[in-house]
C-alpha cells in the first residue's frame, strides 16, 4: 500500500510542478509582447495620463520577476485582476467595473454545464458502442462504425455544428440554434438550449472515445487469460463481466479522462458557433481584442483543467492496476 501511495503522491507532485511551470510559460509568453503594454492596450491617441495610470495599475514599472509573483499570488487567491476593456471603460469615466473573476465565474459555470451534459450523453454511448464494436469486430457493424467514427474525427467541429443546425434546427425545428442561456433560467430550458452544442461535442468526443475503447477491449480480449476463461466453459457474459471488465476498467477510465480533456479544446469552437456564453467564447473574444489579462487567466484555467484531467487518468489507471494494488 505504501508504494502505491508513494506513486500516487509522486504523480500529484508532478502535476503541481507542471502546472507551476506552465504558469511561468504563459506569463513569459505574454511578456514577449513588444514595447509597452499600456500603449498596446490603449492604442494610438492615448493620453500620457491614461498610459501612466494603466502602467501603475498593472505594476509595469516593477521587474518581471516581481510581476510574476504578484500575478501568481492573484491567481491563487482568485484575484484575476481587471480586464483591459474594463480598465478602458473606467478610464473614460465608466462606473461599476467588474473584475475578471466576476466575468469568468458564471461563464466557467456555463461551460462546466455544457461539458457535463456532453459527458453524460457521450460516455455511456461511447463505451457501449466501443465494447460492442470490439465484441463484433470485423463485422458489418464494426466496419460501418469505423467509417463513421473516422469521418467524425476528421471533420472540423464547426462542420458538425452546422450540419446539426441544418437538420435539427433549420429543417426540423427541434432545438434552438442559438444558446442564449442566462442565469436563473429553468433547468429544462437551459438543457434544451444547450442541446445542440452538447450534441456537436458528443459526436466528436464519442468517435474518439469509441475508437479508443474498442482498441483497448480488443487488446484485452486477445490476452491468454480471456482464452483460458472461455476454455473453462464460462458463459460469454461471465467472461466479459468477471474476466474482461475488471481489467478493462483502467484503460476505459483512461480513455474517458483523456477525452474529457479533449473537450476543452472542442468547447472553444462550439461555443463560438452557438454563441454559448461560456469561457471559450470569452477567451476567443478577448483574443480578438487582445485583452491580455483575460487571455492569460483563461489560458491558465484551461491548462489547469487539462492537467487535472490527465492527472486523474494517470492516477485512476495506477489505482486499478492489480499488480500495483497488491504488491509482492
Amino acid at each position: 500500500m505504501s508504494s502505491l501511495l508513494r506513486i500516487v503522491l509522486q504523480r500529484l507532485a508532478l502535476g503541481l510542478v507542471t502546472l507551476f511551470v506552465v504558469s511561468i510559460v504563459i506569463f513569459v509568453a505574454v511578456n514577449l509582447l513588444p514595447g509597452d503594454f499600456a500603449e498596446a492596450i490603449l492604442g494610438q491617441g492615448a493620453t500620457p495620463e491614461s498610459v501612466a495610470s494603466i502602467r501603475r495599475d498593472l505594476g509595469l514599472d516593477q521587474p518581471m520577476f516581481f510581476r510574476y509573483i504578484d500575478w501568481l499570488k492573484g491567481m491563487l487567491t482568485l484575484d484575476l485582476g481587471t480586464s483591459f476593456a474594463q480598465l478602458n471603460f473606467a478610464n473614460f469615466g465608466g462606473a461599476g467595473t467588474t473584475t475578471i473573476a466576476e466575468q469568468i465565474a458564471p461563464r466557467l459555470g456555463n461551460t462546466m454545464f455544457l461539458a457535463t451534459v456532453t459527458a453524460a450523453i457521450a460516455v455511456p454511448l461511447a463505451v457501449t458502442l466501443g465494447i460492442l464494436a470490439a465484441l463484433y469486430r470485423n463485422t458489418a457493424f464494426d466496419k460501418i462504425a469505423n467509417m463513421f467514427t473516422l469521418s467524425s474525427i476528421s471533420s472540423p467541429e464547426f462542420f458538425m455544428a452546422y450540419v446539426l443546425i441544418l437538420f435539427l434546427a433549420v429543417l426540423n425545428p427541434i432545438f434552438p440554434s442559438l444558446s442564449n442561456i442566462f442565469e436563473g433560467m429553468p433547468f429544462s430550458e437551459r438543457l434544451e438550449k444547450s442541446m445542440l452544442p452538447a450534441l456537436t461535442l458528443t459526436l466528436v468526443v464519442t468517435a474518439h472515445m469509441m475508437r479508443m475503447t474498442r482498441a483497448a477491449i480488443i487488446n484485452l480480449l486477445a490476452s491468454p487469460y480471456i482464452e483460458m476463461a472461455r476454455l473453462k466453459g464460462l458463459s460469454p457474459m461471465r467472461v466479459i463481466v468477471k474476466h474482461a471488465l475488471p481489467n478493462a476498467l483502467a484503460p476505459i477510465i483512461n480513455v474517458i479522462a483523456l477525452n474529457l480533456a479533449y473537450l476543452i479544446t472542442g468547447v472553444v469552437v462550439v461555443e463560438v458557433v452557438f454563441v454559448y456564453p461560456g469561457i471559450g467564447q470569452l477567451f476567443v473574444d478577448s483574443v480578438k481584442i487582445r485583452d491580455i489579462p483575460v487571455v492569460q487567466a483563461c489560458c491558465l484555467i484551461f491548462a489547469a483543467a487539462y492537467i487535472l484531467l490527465n492527472l486523474t487518468a494517470d492516477i485512476m489507471s495506477i489505482l486499478s492496476n492489480p499488480r500495483l494494488r497488491h504488491p509482492k
Binding site: A29, L32, V295
Partner: peptide
C-alpha cells in the same frame, strides 16, 4: 504538451 494546443495557439496568436 500540458497546455491544450488550440488554447496555446490562440494565446500565442494574440501576441
Amino acid at each position: 504538451m500540458a497546455i491544450p494546443s488550440l488554447i496555446f495557439a490562440l494565446l500565442l496568436m494574440t501576441i
